[in-house]
Design a protein around this nucleic acid. Structure first.
Length: 208
DNA sequence: GACCAGATTGTCT
DNA sequence: GACAATCTGGTCA
């Protein structure tokens, strides 16, 4: 397992969101390590996307979104849940990818304790759930994914089973009211850890 | 399985 | 003062 290449985060946000599927998100706090395989993401674009936090310019909350690509952007939603994003493209742009679901890989017992549930599919099948399961903290907002406690990893190229494009479903994003129809959500077809499936988009994929 | 309401607080207008 | 990139538990079919 090696760190993701920094150049990855400079790609267009939709590309990053798609490329992240199949990669690994790791969190280290002292000796406690948890790792999950990314199975669902959403892209939030700097232009033409009113659902993006950065749409109306920089504020105190969204400041990390305007930092260098590969920065962690963690924010509080609905007064009680935290969500984790990866900043993309270039400094000052204000685009990011929301990680929505993981397949638990390492530190599963720790995840169970943090989430206070047993079922594997309930550990990381939602943006706020995976933050809780990995033990990601709001203080880690703005840290670098290359050197901070949160890391993005990929399997070495040799012998790696490359994520086939065919098995990635593209559909509308979840839980937003503005620009809800843009196809900016990506998830792995058939994976039980995905937070919400889109039967319509899956049928379209099957026909290809 | 689908739908709905309630919890709860920082941020922005 | 309204709203929000959510989750959970309850109800109903």
């Amino acid at each position: 397992m090696t760190s993701a290449k920094p150049s990855l985060f400079k790609l267009p946000t939709e590309r990053v969101a798609e490329e992240l599927i199949g990669m690994y998100l790791a969190h280290e706090a002292g000796r406690e390590r948890t790792v999950g395989r990314i199975v669902e993401t959403e892209a939030y674009l700097c232009e033409g996307d009113p659902a993006c936090h950065a749409h109306r310019g920089m504020t105190r909350r969204n400041q990390p979104m305007f930092g260098p690509p590969g920065t962690a952007y963690i924010y509080l939603i609905y007064g009680m849940h935290y969500c984790f994003n990866v900043v993309t493209e270039a400094p000052g742009i204000g685009a990011a990818v929301l990680v929505r679901a993981l397949e638990p890989v390492e530190g599963i017992q720790l995840m169970r304790e943090r989430r206070k549930v047993d079922a594997l599919t309930q550990l990381c099948s939602g943006p706020a759930k995976l933050v809780q399961a990995l033990g990601i903290r709001p203080e880690e907002n703005g840290t670098s994914l290359a050197s901070g406690p949160i890391k993005l990893l990929e399997r070495p190229a040799v012998g790696a089973r490359r994520q086939s494009r065919r098995s990635i479903v593209t559909c509308e994003r979840v839980g937003i009211t503005q620009a809800a129809d843009l196809p900016l959500r990506f998830y792995e077809l058939g994976n039980i850890h995905v937070s919400k499936r889109s039967p319509k988009a899956e049928r379209t994929l099957e026909r290809r």
